[in-house]
């Protein structure tokens, strides 16, 4: 028996929004410690690695390890039917071929349930290797999303140059060029708003806007984003 409850459906909506443009389908591996998802995106150039720890749920029970292959577009259709503040319960029996999503309104007067067929997906064992990165930048997630969006207008790729003093984002194309420099925050009064750089050696790397913009779909999940960079290694 698997059962996971969140007091606000909004949390899972945000998680789903963060991955549904990158993945058509994915396996949610449920165990006692929580739910793990790891999958290459549809074009096989980036890895989505997601961990929902059991203690992040308001109620969590998983008697036996369970792999639930889900079509994320169908899951999104179901999640769209929930109000943000509805309580969400995901349920599946052991060896089941369906998962149930139940939404309860705050006043308990509306209860809806949706059943979705599970899929058998090829499982690959993937992961982000432990790496000592040349530069690690922590910055406001909203600011990063804004920069990616703004620079996408000027080119298909963004160059990120990081030194001890700051980080520079650049793009260029037919319309011209654009540069955005962020200095490291001098005093950390508000941690959420700070730009912090840990640098072993400076790096200059180029990334496709398309992917950066996909990654920033996760922005509502956290106030800060961490960019870990080394030469010849994925961001």
């Amino acid at each position: 028996m698997f059962e996971a409850r969140l007091n606000a459906s909004n949390v899972l909506k945000k998680v789903l929004d963060a991955i549904k443009d990158l993945l058509n389908e994915a396996t949610f591996d449920c165990s006692d410690s929580g739910i793990q998802l790891q999958a290459m995106d549809n074009s096989h150039v980036s890895l989505v690695s997601l961990s929902l720890r059991s203690d992040g749920f308001d109620k969590y029970r998983c008697d036996r390890n369970l792999s639930m292959g889900m079509n994320l577009a169908n899951m999104a259709k179901i999640m769209k039917c929930a109000n943000n503040d509805d309580t969400l319960t995901m349920k599946a029996q052991d060896n089941a071929d369906t998962v149930t999503f139940m939404f309860e309104s705050q006043n308990q007067e509306k209860v809806s349930d949706y059943e979705m067929k599970l899929m058998n997906l090829d499982q690959e064992h993937l992961g982000i290797p432990e790496t000592d990165y040349a530069c690690v930048v922590r910055m406001p997630a909203m600011e990063f999303a804004r920069i990616c969006r703004d620079l996408s207008q000027f080119g298909e790729s963004v160059v990120i140059s990081c030194t001890k003093e700051g980080v520079k984002f650049s793009a260029s194309g037919d319309a011209g060029s654009a540069n955005i420099k962020l200095a490291q925050t001098s005093t950390i009064d508000k941690e959420d708003e700070s730009v912090i750089i840990e640098m072993q050696e400076p790096v200059t790397l180029t990334f496709a806007c398309r992917y950066l913009n996909s990654f920033t779909k996760a922005t509502p999940l956290c106030n800060q984003v961490q960019l870990s960079m080394s030469a010849d290694v994925p961001l």
Binding site: H44, V45, L47, I128, P129
Partner: peptide, 14 residues
């Protein structure tokens, strides 16, 4: 695509 293969290998040999 060579880059694509390189990236896949990177994540597989974790």
């Amino acid at each position: 695509d060579v880059d694509q293969l390189k990236i896949e290998q990177y994540y597989k040999f974790n």
